[in-house]
Write a protein that binds this DNA or RNA. Structure first.
Lengths: 396, 396
DNA sequence: GCTAGTTTGTTGGGCGCCCCAACTAATTGC
DNA sequence: GCAATTAGTTGGGGCGCCCAACAAACTAGC
């Protein structure tokens, strides 16, 4: 078992990181620990370079000695979120509180380049972020990838990238001059879920599914307030749920998969767009924004397509609700800006196929973080790990 | 946070309860605690009436002072598992180690009787078990019910029982002369999963789904070694997964539900039996055993029915595997004895619809506990709670 | 049969870490 | 300026862990 001290150090640190600067007295009240204990814990955290006394003296118009707030040490460790996607790379560096220090988004055709080169380029971006952040060593780096992840930190399969068995974590660690304490790889939908959990539509929820509409359809599953990866790390393959067992064949080998019937290509085709238009180097936000505009303009074919896709999604969401009974389903990726039109058909299917006669309630909400969800989730996941492990690491 | 002492008391108690009698030295080795600490913990547990020194002196042909084993105090608290099903009631009492002390199975048409009477009858059975177990107060009682459970211990809906909003926990507590510390209600499929987890095919697994084939099809979901209930306690409604969105209407309001296509009635109908035959007061094992016999005899129609139902189940299992990536799916209820014939078509669907191109692995196994799964799970769940909470309760 | 060797369990002391009580510190209100 | 109030620190007590030494109970070998 983690020592009591470590546990309490984490408790205090997380409180300050997540709820902002606060006095020792407040911390004592909030954690239920004794004032003196909190003082000692805070002293240790200051010593470890994680916290510092707030210089800004706020004068509360209140009787009594004014509190001395402590806050995260701006010179303290920070966290790196990285993303490799089909046509761009992204970096995001924050401190332990999640305050942005540096970010970059670089268009980069990663299908054309060799995986080693792509990771090298990503490492360059990371080093750049390090410089901007003052050259200090990041405590954690997490890489979002559009594919399935090995338990040991490799990228197993990324169909849209054309990558198979690329040891991303290993390559990145090797490419960085000062590799952070923890380097991990995670599926972009999983990270989208984590991002929404920490700073998006999933704040305060403990069980939800984040559906990511990119080129494919993925999902991140959050159960009991934590990302659920499954036994081999492949949970959340929502796109390959069978919707119609006798439907059209899907690239995965199955038939009538959700992705095939309601994925980007199907959606665009139903709405009357040639899916290949997408290849014109458009931003990832493109399909959602465009379809939303078209729907707002009242184009019948678009509205019909959205209704159709909504019903299909609804069948999948109902399956998911039947199995997991989540509090909400968050529509991310290009589905987010289309929620307005998708919600009704989804909820209709949900109602008939899952909720009928039960006290279950499963809300359908738009995700809030758009195309930044994956990088933000990468940061958030690193931050979580760091906040749960940082004190012993630094105190050592 | 639970105090360190409580945590360690639980650690030692669980070790003895789950792994059998052992010496203080062994416990120290296994828990990583110091010998002296273990001695003190054991003393406290003996004092609380939970453990005792083993009277049976085993002479190990080994040099050194012979160890003094401690074991669960046979006079210690015990646990009650109860079951209300459509046509029977069942009770099972064990000690904290799970050693059976008393059990009873009583045919009882619970559809005909008023819920209050049924619970009163169940309470009588429980009192009887108490007598047989020496009249001591049980520490926990868990009731398995064939329906959806309210978060506050009521039975929300039990379609096959015709019950709606019956406060079972409350009624039972009121009906018992010495109500146990904890009384809870749980869905039978959920408890089946817990039973398989503790003493069945799920031992040692941390993520699996137990599929219960009774009159309907339910499922219990075990994630990270614990029963997963979902946000409102309705997780695992596997039977109402949509398999064919344009399939035949189901009683739940949906269309093409798994239960409708592969439930007991469909299975029997496909195999050429009139489903109404089942009403002849048959034992719950009936459909599985009979169909297995028929399949073993090589009846073409039965084999075809099993293959068909297997494929249908396989589509559902594939959905489940895509979402949850479990280590295994356990086939329970009447599916268990039919696993031999169901596995191939299920695995075929699983392969094409979920596992293709992934390193995922999801075994399809027969459940081991048959029709006793639910009561056994009721006991097991109570036992788990007791073993995690017993020390403080008794030490007080 | 006696002694050395081995393993088990207990006793006494030390220490980490939490809590409590008393105290100092810094402010407002009268 | 003096109570009242709130914040943070200091010293002491106690819980509960670990360590070391010891006592207990056995086997092995001479």
């Amino acid at each position: 078992m983690r020592s009591v001290r470590e546990h309490n150090l984490g408790l205090v640190l997380r409180r300050v990181a997540e709820e902002g600067p606060r006095s020792r007295a407040t911390l004592a009240l909030e954690t239920g620990l004794n004032k003196t204990t909190v003082s000692s814990l805070v002293a240790e955290l200051i010593d470890a370079g994680l916290l510092r006394d707030s210089p800004s003296e706020v004068r509360p118009a209140r009787v009594g000695r004014p509190p001395q707030s402590v806050e995260l040490d701006p010179e303290g460790p920070f966290v790196l979120g990285l993303e490799i996607n089909v046509d761009y790379l992204a970096v995001r560096a924050t401190d332990l509180a999640g305050v942005l220090r540096h970010h970059a988004f670089v268009a980069h055709d990663n299908r054309a380049a060799a995986p080693e080169e792509v990771v090298a380029e990503l490492a360059r971006l990371a080093e750049q972020a390090l410089e901007f952040a003052g050259g200090r060593q990041p405590i954690a780096a997490t890489v979002a990838v559009p594919g399935l992840v090995d338990p040991d930190g490799g990228l197993a399969v990324a169909p849209n990238l054309g990558w198979v068995d690329v040891p991303v974590a290993q390559l990145l660690t090797a490419a960085l001059a000062y590799p952070p304490y923890s380097v991990r790889i995670e599926n972009e939908a999983n990270l989208g879920a984590v991002a929404e959990l920490t700073e998006g539509a999933g704040r305060g929820l403990s069980d939800f599914v984040y559906v990511s509409g990119e080129i494919g359809i993925g999902a991140g599953v959050v159960l009991r307030g934590e990302l659920f990866r499954g036994a081999s790390g492949f949970a959340g393959e929502f796109g390959h749920l069978t919707i119609d067992p006798f439907g059209p064949p899907c690239g995965c080998g199955g038939r009538g998969c959700l992705e095939r019937l309601a994925g980007q290509e199907a959606l665009l085709r139903l709405a009357g767009w040639d899916a290949r238009v997408r290849c014109e180097g458009a931003r990832p936000e493109w399909p959602g924004a465009m379809l939303a505009e078209s729907a707002r303009a009242g184009h019948a074919r678009t509205l019909e397509a959205l209704s159709q896709v909504g019903r299909t999604l609804g069948i999948g969401v109902a399956s998911l609700a039947n199995l997991l009974d989540p509090e909400a389903v968050l529509l991310g990726g290009h589905f987010a800006p289309l929620t307005e039109w998708l919600r009704v058909p989804i909820e209709a299917e949900l109602e008939t196929r899952a909720l009928a006669g039960r006290r279950m309630r499963c809300r359908v909400l738009p995700a809030r973080l758009g195309s930044e969800a994956a990088v933000r989730g990468a940061v958030a996941l690193g931050r979580r790990t760091a906040l749960h492990n940082a004190p012993p690491l630094r105190a050592a």
